[in-house]
Amino acid sequence: MTAVPLDRPATTRRGDSVFKGLATAAAVMILVALAGVGIFLTLEGVPALSAESGALGGKDNIVLYVWPLIYGTLLAAALAILMAAPLSIGLALVISHYAPRRLSKPIGYVIDLLAAVPSVVYGLWGIEFLGPRLGQAYGWLAENLGFLPFFEGPASGSGRTILTAGVVLAVMALPIITAICREIFSQTPVLHQEAALALGATRWEMIRLTVFPYGRSGMISAVMLGMGRALGETMAVAMVLSATGVVTINLISSVNPSTIAANIALGFPEASGIKVNVLIFSGLVLFLITFVVNFLGRLIAGRGQVKEGR
C-alpha cells in the first residue's frame, strides 16, 4: 500500500522533466540561432578582409568599399525617420484621441494593412507611381531651391533617388511607429487627462501636458524600432534607387549612394568566389548596426517601463 504513492511521483516526474527539457531546449535554440547568425556571418565574412580591389568594385580595401554603403544606409534611414516620425505621432494621436471612437478602430485596421503589404510591392509602387511624380517635384526643387546643397540638381527625371527611397522607407516604417505610439498614447492615465481638461486646458494642451510626457520613452523606442526596420529594408530600396555608390548629400540627382541591404540584394544572385564573402561581410556590418539601434530602442523602452511601475 505504501509503495504506490512513493512510486507515482517518480513516473510523473519523468514526463515533467522530458517536457521541461524540450521547452528549455527550444529556448536555448533561440540563443544558439542568434549566436549562429553572428558566427556564420563572421566565418563567411572574414575572408573579405583580404579581398583584392577586383572584387571590391575598384576600391582598395574593404573599409573603403563598405563606408559609402554605411553612409547610404544611414542617410536613407534618417530621411525616412524624419518624415515618418512626426506623421506617425500625428496618426497615432488621431487614432487614440482625435477620431470618434467608432472610427478609430477601422483606422487602426487600415494602418495595420499598410504593415502587411510585402516590401516588393512597395518597390513596384515606388518605381511606377511615386518615382515619376516625385521626379517632377525634384525638377521644381532644383530650379527654385538649388542653392541648398540637398537640392543641387541636376534633378533625376525618373525620380529614382535616395529621397524617393527615403519616402518609400518612411511609408514602410510608419505602421510600426504608429502601432507602438497609439498603444502608449491610449494607456495614458485617464485621470491625468481629465485633470488637465478640468483645469481648462484645450485638447492640444492636454495632450502636451499629459500624453506626451507619459509616452516619451515609448515614443523614442518606437522611432528607434522604425529606424531598425528602415535600416534593414532591402527590396524596396533595391528596386527604387538607382545607385552609383558615391557619398553625396545631394538628395535629388541621379547619382546616389547605395544602401548595404540593397547592394547585397542586387549583387548576390550573380556573385561568386570572394565577392560573396565581401557581400556577407557588409551584411555583418548591417547586422551590427541594426543590433545596436534595436538594443538602444529596447533599452529606452525598458527604462520607461520601470518608471511606470511606481
Binding site: I30, A33, L34, G36, V37, F40, L41, E44, L225, G228, R229, L231, G232, E233, T234, A261, I264, A265, L279, I280, G283, L286, F287, T290, F291, V293, N294, F295, G297, R298
Partner: peptide, 13 residues
C-alpha cells in the same frame, strides 16, 4: 533583438 534582424541578414545567415 531577433525581431529586428533585417530579412536580408537572415538570408545571408
Amino acid at each position: 533583438v531577433m525581431t529586428g534582424i533585417p530579412s536580408i541578414v537572415a538570408g545571408l545567415f
